[in-house]
Computed example of a mutant assay.
Amino acid sequence: MTQSTFRGPGAGAGPLMRVWAASEPAPDRLENEDHLLQYGQLVGVLDGATVPEGFETGCVHGPAWYVRQLAARIGVAAARRPYAALAGNLAAAILAVRADHEGRCDLDHPGTPSSTVCLLRHDGDHVDYLVLCDSPLVVDRGDRVEVIADDRLETAMAELRQSALAVAGTGAGADPTIRFRRAVTLQRQQMNQTHGYWVAAANPDAAFHALTGSLPLGGADGVRRAALLTDGASCAVDQFGLFDWRGLLDLLGRDGPAELIRRVRVAEAGDGGPGRRRHKRYDDATALFCDFEEAP
């Protein structure tokens, strides 16, 4: 688990941001396709899309390579333009990773490597955020907990499952393999499309479809705490129901992100292990927790 403390830029920098983070690959996988990002006042989590067995990507690299490259390029963009809009910096990072492929890959392939992105930047008296695809940001604003989530992938998948059922059928004679392969094929066709969902891949325009905004620090509705999560960690609430969102923040603040991941692993290994709406038993899990304290 990593721990860092940042002070906002400029005079009257506002609250300190203390950061705790942990990331762990799925127990049945050697390589972690999640990634943590910490660069100055900018923190983030990324979740690379796992390539199902038997599917091509048109790329000689894998999801783990893609998330590492994208995180590094986001850091470079932040170094060059520390106060630029997060969407603009993400677009620049995606464009830079295109060049990192060095012409060896078919970046127009529907299975080209992709990643979710969740970013939070401490900027004195406020924080800026960006959420792209299904890695949510959870913020404690005193009397309420707010979840900033991009649900377009979930909406698209619900529709795709219905289409897959129409092809593979239902009941005892249905073929789940055909249904799954059909759903994956349809999902790829919906990636970075107006009526589908948006994710960081090869098209920099996706960055401008992210959910973005700013939230105050301090005051009655100011952000006290925040959690950036990949779906392998957010499933503690929205799939396994281990606690509610405020309970998740309480656990992170009390016991840290590694304990959250441990509890997810226990749930995955239990009777409900395969998880609701999952095609795999385990998933990579990453959680980053920010606590904002007034400077002395």
Rank of each mutant, 00 (worst) to 15 (best):
T185S: 04
G222C: 03
T185E: 14
R152H: 12
L217K: 04
A166P: 04
D150A: 03
G171S: 14
G169I: 00
G213E: 08
M157D: 05
G171C: 10
N203H: 11
Y197P: 12
G173H: 10
T185L: 09
L228V: 11
A172E: 12
L165T: 07
H195V: 15
A183P: 05
L186R: 02
N203A: 05
L211V: 13
G213R: 01
G219T: 05
N203K: 11
A172Y: 08
F180C: 00
R225D: 08
L211M: 11
D231P: 09
E154G: 11
A164C: 00
G222M: 04
P216S: 07
L186E: 15
P204N: 04
A220N: 06
M157Q: 11
R181S: 00
A206K: 03
Q187A: 14
V167F: 05
A220R: 15
Q189F: 00
T212D: 03
R161C: 05
D151E: 15
A206R: 05
D221Q: 13
P176E: 14
G222R: 07
V223I: 15
T230M: 07
G173Y: 09
Q187R: 13
A207W: 06
L229A: 12
G213I: 06
T212G: 01
D151C: 07
D221Y: 12
T155E: 13
D150K: 01
V223P: 01
Q189T: 03
N203Q: 15
T230D: 07
H209C: 07
P204D: 02
Y197F: 15
L217D: 08
A156T: 14
F180P: 04
A164G: 07
G222Q: 09
V147L: 09
Q190C: 10
L229Q: 05
G196R: 11
A210V: 09
Q193L: 10
A156Q: 09
A210C: 05
R161L: 13
F208W: 14
D151H: 14
D205C: 06
G196D: 09
E154D: 13
S163Y: 06
V167E: 06
A210E: 03
F180D: 12
Q190N: 07
R181H: 14
A168I: 10
D175M: 05
A202G: 10
L229P: 05
A207D: 02
